[in-house]
Design a protein around this nucleic acid. Structure first.
Lengths: 157, 157
DNA sequence: TAAATTTATTTCAAGCTTAAAATATCAAAG
DNA sequence: CTTTGATATTTTAAGCTTGAAATAAATTTA
């Protein structure tokens, strides 16, 4: 009897977790689509390009291709293409590393830095607008849960 | 002085909201990547295909291409390709609509339904595992916030 | 009814994405 | 040294994704 009850509890809890995951995915997708569209319309830049610029902005010393791929959680081959195009357009630069001829760091050019700062300001205000209803307490709460989730799922082994 | 304080408050709140968004995106991406990899390894199916099957499973009467595209929040042209491939592999079926020669509904085949049920069970257990630390209260809390967020961002105008 | 507009879908070009294979270089061990 | 294994990146093929243009059919309107 107790086992049965526990099973039933687990079952509905797992359904509830699934439901949360689907909601989270949906909210993310909605916001992401909105951001993608505004980036395109306002700055004629794609979301993946924006993401790469943002990662590099957070690391003024530059990032290797591998570090960039890990930071963005995308495949290494993927980064190659985006960086190629950003390089062609003068937003980023591949800088050889002194002691390792295999690796290069990628850095923002002054143009890339300047353009990103403009986009980042708009981006922040869009997010602020889309999350208008959330106060500080709610936000801290959410952040804590998400942090825990990410570690649990990502396998910090 | 009061204005100044308010501005500072707003500024840090908007940064906090941005921070939340980035965490949410990161958690989603981590879980999504994990699910994608497991679907591929376990069932040799891609995540977009799984998403389409899931949407159709929730609507046994079938969905038009437009409804499917809206449900998944992806472009209409995107759905065409995925449904094409699922059709070729015998998972779904395009069924003409009686009164409207422009539209077709898409439905799961028995094979599609059967295969999806197997995948869905595994999928649910993966999510359960990845969200092990979240209890019912936390989950309900999160769902409420996410629901609000989605409506705010998605423009329910 | 004919023309104009709207709706449903597909097609297309460009770019994004992954997983796996191929290159190239470095580091370690014999 | 030089082979062996590890690391960093690019390449490749297949599939995903978008936004816009092209078709086609239904609906509205003059």
């Amino acid at each position: 009897m107790k086992v049965m009850a526990a099973e039933n509890n687990n079952l509905s809890l797992s359904k509830q977790r699934l439901r949360l995951w689907l909601r989270m995915l949906r909210a993310s997708k909605t916001i992401e689509n909105e951001v993608r569209e505004r980036l395109k319309k306002t700055f004629d830049v794609t979301l993946p390009r924006f993401d790469v610029l943002a990662a590099l902005y957070r690391h003024p010393e530059g990032l290797t291709m591998t570090a960039l791929s890990r930071d963005l959680e995308v495949s290494n081959g993927n980064v190659t293409g985006i960086v190629d195009r950003l390089t062609k357009d003068g937003f980023v630069l591949r800088v050889p590393i002194a002691n390792d001829r295999r690796a290069t760091t990628v850095q923002l050019t002054p143009k890339g830095k300047g353009e990103f700062e403009i986009m980042a300001e708009a981006h922040e205000s869009w997010i602020d607008e889309m999350m208008e209803s959330l106060n500080e307490a709610r936000i801290d709460e959410m952040i804590a849960v998400l942090e825990q989730l990410k570690n649990e799922a990502g396998g910090v082994e």
